[in-house]
Structures are given as structure tokens and as C-alpha cells.
Design a protein around this nucleic acid. Structure first.
Lengths: 126, 126
DNA sequence: TGGTTCATTAACCATCTGGTTCAAGACAGC
DNA sequence: GCTGTCTTGAACCAGATGGTTAATGAACCA
């Protein structure tokens, strides 16, 4: 996946309105007015959001008379997930550090817990 | 995970410089100058990127004399992956459509997606 | 002490983003 | 045709973003 495509996908996912639109589309095709209904913003605003999603190829659009139904497209989401996935090995280490940290911290008085930056346990890294 | 946190994480991931920084951090802690080295931008620009990553809690920072080493933090990445994961059922449908389409088009046996194991990372949060 | 290194802050700039309103395009039904 | 519905386009605005340069802070070293 090219960088620019990843840029577009993550940028598209960074807005709660757009995530909500995707959530609705996950339950099936929908028209623009249907997608707009839950939100308190104007139709052109929705149209812009759809354009962002479309540029990221997260949705595709059809035609049905005056309507332009939207449908969720899987591939870019899968690719974004796959990008994150590449870090799994590293995060799992980090999650292990987190676990260890929480374990040690939960046995300490609360006051000591509040300024953390220096005290974190440092796992081995590669 | 709250919406605002997801916003911050996806927005942070939407920039190629920041993704490259994360990629480097995946191989271990690094100082700001080390992180800046591959890029052709000024140190304050790197500093700003780090602040974005830190606001998204994707990195944490320590202190070592004048240096402020950065470290990858796993949890928010895992949470972002998990958000995307919630759509898996829908995308797989769509990916299946894609597969079927490719099959009819190129008339080749498709031993597709064996490279998507992806059982959700360790059911830790959610 | 004073110089050097590592990193951040301040001030500024151009561009992008998310919203608005008003106008227009595309189509169905009468 | 005319009218109403669904959707997009154009123009505009405020605030965020990604970059710059110059100045400052913080810590080491000699």
C-alpha cells in the first residue's frame, strides 16, 4: 500500500462523523440523506465527508435515480489494519511491559503512581 | 475507548513522517536527534510531530541527561486495530465479493488470503 | 564559569479542514 | 413542460496543521 493511500485512510478515520458513517454503512448500503439523518450538520457537510471517504476508497457509490447510495469497501480498512498489524510483535512486548508495570504499581501507594515518566520498567528491545 | 482518543490516534497515524517515526521506535527507544536524522525537516518540526504522537499516547518520553528518549506505547495502537476489527465481519463479506470478482475475471484458482491470520490481539481491551 | 549539545518554545506563514449559506444539477411524477 | 426531492458545487470563514527561523532552556564538560 502506498503511503499516500495510508495517509488518506487514516485521515478519513480520524473524524468521528466519518467513523459513524462507516459504522452505519457496515450495516448495509445507505443513501446520503439516510446517512445524514443522525447528524446535526448540513447536507453539504455530509457530502464533503463522503468525498473524503471516497478519496480514501473506504466507500464506493452507485446510482439509483436521484440517489447516490454508498457502500463500505473493505480493502483499505484491511490494509490499514494490516499496517498496524506489522507492529504487533513490538507492541506485544510493550503490552507485556505495561502488564508488568501495572503489576508492580498496584502494590505501591497512590502518591508514587502519579509522576510516572521516569519509573517505567524497560523491557528489552531489539 | 473514547472518540476523542480514537480521533487523536488516527490523526497521528495519518502523517507519513509520524508513521516513519513509529516504525523506527518499533525497533527500540530513540532520542529526538536520532529520530530526526532520516528526515529533511527542522528539529522543531520533529518536536511537533512527537507532541502529536504523545497526545495520542502512542509514545512516552523519558529523560536521560539532555536527551528525552521516546518509546512506542502499544495500547492505543491495539485499540485502533480493535476498532477496525469491529468491522471485520462486514469487510470479509466485501473481501469475499472482491475475491469472487477476481476469480471470475482472471479465471485463476485463487489461494487468496492465507496471509490474514489476525485473530484479534490477545483480547486485552474492549 | 563559559561553551557545546540536545531539545523545546515563540512567532510567523501557507495550506488544509470542517463547517456554513446559497445556488445549481439531475431525476421522478404530475 | 413545471414542481418537488436528492445531491453536489461555489464561495466563504474560523481554526487546525505542518513547516520555517530565531531565541531559550537544560544539562554536560572543560
Amino acid at each position: 500500500m502506498q503511503a499516500a493511500q495510508l495517509d488518506a485512510v487514516f485521515a478519513a478515520l480520524a473524524d468521528p462523523t466519518r467513523r459513524a458513517i462507516l459504522a452505519k454503512l457496515a450495516r448495509g448500503e445507505a443513501t446520503v440523506t439516510e446517512l445524514a439523518a443522525p447528524f446535526d450538520i448540513s447536507m453539504p457537510a455530509i457530502s464533503k465527508h463522503l468525498k473524503v471517504l471516497q478519496r480514501a476508497r473506504l466507500i464506493s457509490r452507485g446510482r439509483d435515480a436521484q440517489r447516490r447510495p454508498c457502500r463500505l469497501e473493505a480493502a483499505p480498512l484491511a490494509q490499514a489494519a494490516s499496517w498496524i498489524d506489522d507492529y504487533r510483535r513490538c507492541w506485544e512486548e510493550s503490552l507485556d511491559r505495561l502488564d508488568a508495570y501495572l503489576k508492580t504499581v498496584q502494590q505501591q501507594p497512590r502518591r508514587a503512581r502519579e509522576q510516572r515518566p521516569k519509573a517505567r520498567p524497560r523491557g528489552r528491545q531489539h
